[in-house]
Each structure stands twice: as structure tokens, then as C-alpha cells.
């Protein structure tokens, strides 16, 4: 059947991902080791914030990945809706929990950073608030995808929600910034300095790259395990049908 040719891709995906995975895993480990060493040991402490500034090397890349994952969730969803490719569905579904984890890490490290800086765990800072709303968007997506008995229905509904959410993210961001300037005009809330010294920028970028590779590694592993799960289902089905 001609229309089935597109389902042949998962086989190619399996081969390809098996070849790529060791490299991305090794790259993640290496970059993270170097980035953490440079960030935690080599780079200088901030003259205002002291040693606490080092949380930045985890917080900022996590926040970037939180946004980046949502964009890739939306892209995979668009691909799933347009080309109806099952791999795109899987990619979207498996991106969401990873993105939600990055978002949670960004929020947790933001709170940890805020404690010494502001003397309180949580400040309704524009950036943190937007990230919090983003976490709710991720949770809504995950809840919706899992709320159907027919997995295909869940995948389709989730894909539409991801696109709707993606269109809304800039609007939410804008409105939260607007709200923030109304309520706390002083800009005490800058988490990252505008002009950053190279000794801090290098580890930050290394960590960002490490997080990106970590995302790719986790995503490939999750998709592979989903495909293997399906394979088991088929084998069990065969057993039942003799």
C-alpha cells in the first residue's frame, strides 16, 4: 500500500538514533563537565551577588531550554498535523515532559537564587512569572494528551493545543511584562547582567550547549523507548492471535 511508505521512517529513525545517541550522550557529559568546572571554579564571583551568581549557569540555560522545548513542541505538533507523521506525534509527546522538567528546574533555581538576592523565595518578577505560566501550559498539554482512551485523539488534541499555546506565549509574556511594570516600576529584577564578562559568558554558553545536547539525548532515548514499547505490543498481539 503506497500510503504506508511514510511509516517506514521509524525503522530508519531507529538505526539513525542508535548511531547518534552515544555521541550526543558523550557530548553532553563533556560539555557539562567543562561548563560546570569553568562556571563553578574558574569564573569569578560577582561583585554584587558574590558566589550566588553561579546559580546562573544552571538557571539561565534551563530557562532558555524551557522556551526552546516549547517551540520544538509546537514545531513537532505542526508537523504532526500537516503530514500526519506518527514520529512527529511521538516527538511532540516526548518533548513535553522534558520541557516541563527544564521549566521546573528554571523555577526552582530561580527561587534558590532569589532567596539570597531578595531575601525571599519567590518574587513576582516578570520573567519568573512568565516561566510559571509556561509550566502550566506544559502541564495542560501533558494532561490533555493522556486524557483520551484513543491515543491518536490525544495526540491530535495535544498538537492543536501546543500550537494555540505557542501563539499565546508571546502575548502572555507581553502582558506579564506590562503587569510587572505597573506594579513594580524599579527594575531590581534583572537576573542576567546586560553586559556580561567573557569569563562568565563562556561557561554560560557551554552550559547552554550542554543542556541542548542533553535535551536531544533524552528526546531520542524517549522516542526509542516508545517505539520499543509498540514493538512489544505487536509481539504480544501476535502471541494472542497465534
Amino acid at each position: 500500500m503506497s500510503s504506508l511508505h511514510r511509516f517506514a521512517n521509524p525503522a530508519r529513525f531507529s538505526r539513525l538514533s542508535r548511531a547518534v545517541l552515544p555521541w550526543t550522550a558523550a557530548g553532553t557529559t563533556l560539555l557539562m563537565a567543562v561548563g560546570l568546572y569553568l562556571g563553578l571554579v574558574v569564573s569569578p564571583a560577582d561583585y554584587q551577588q558574590g558566589e550566588t551568581v553561579r546559580i546562573m549557569y544552571v538557571h539561565v540555560p534551563a530557562a532558555w531550554m524551557a522556551m526552546g522545548c516549547y517551540t520544538s513542541l509546537a514545531l513537532a505538533s505542526a508537523a504532526a498535523l500537516i503530514w500526519k507523521h506518527p514520529l512527529a506525534d511521538l516527538a511532540a509527546q516526548e518533548t513535553a515532559p522534558i520541557g516541563a522538567c527544564f521549566t521546573a528546574i528554571a523555577l526552582a533555581t530561580g527561587a534558590l537564587w532569589g532567596q539570597p538576592m531578595w531575601g525571599t523565595w519567590w518574587v513576582w518578577d516578570a520573567r519568573l512569572t512568565s516561566v510559571l505560566v509556561l509550566l502550566f501550559l506544559y502541564l495542560g498539554y501533558i494532561a490533555l494528551v493522556n486524557a483520551f482512551d484513543d491515543p491518536q485523539r490525544g495526540a491530535r488534541a495535544g498538537a492543536i493545543l501546543a500550537l494555540v499555546g505557542w501563539v499565546n506565549v508571546p502575548i502572555i509574556k507581553f502582558s506579564v511584562d506590562w503587569w510587572n511594570t505597573l506594579h513594580q516600576p524599579a527594575s531590581i529584577s534583572r537576573l542576567d547582567a546586560p553586559a556580561i564578562h567573557p569569563s562568565m559568558l563562556t561557561p554560560l554558553l557551554l552550559m547552554a550547549l550542554a543542556f541542548l545536547l542533553l535535551f536531544i539525548t533524552l528526546l531520542l532515548m524517549r522516542i526509542r523507548s516508545r517505539l520499543i514499547d509498540r514493538r512489544i505490543q505487536v509481539m504480544q498481539q501476535r502471541e494472542i492471535e497465534g
Binding site: 504506508l4 511509516f7 521509524p10 525503522a11 509498540r230 514493538r231 498481539q237 492471535e241
Partner: peptide
């Protein structure tokens, strides 16, 4: 085959 051909193609 009465089985799940789409799934099989996925492997």
C-alpha cells in the same frame, strides 16, 4: 493479515 499492519510497518 487480521493483525495490526500499521503497527508492523512502524517497526
Amino acid at each position: 493479515q487480521g493483525t495490526l499492519p500499521v503497527l508492523e510497518a512502524l517497526l
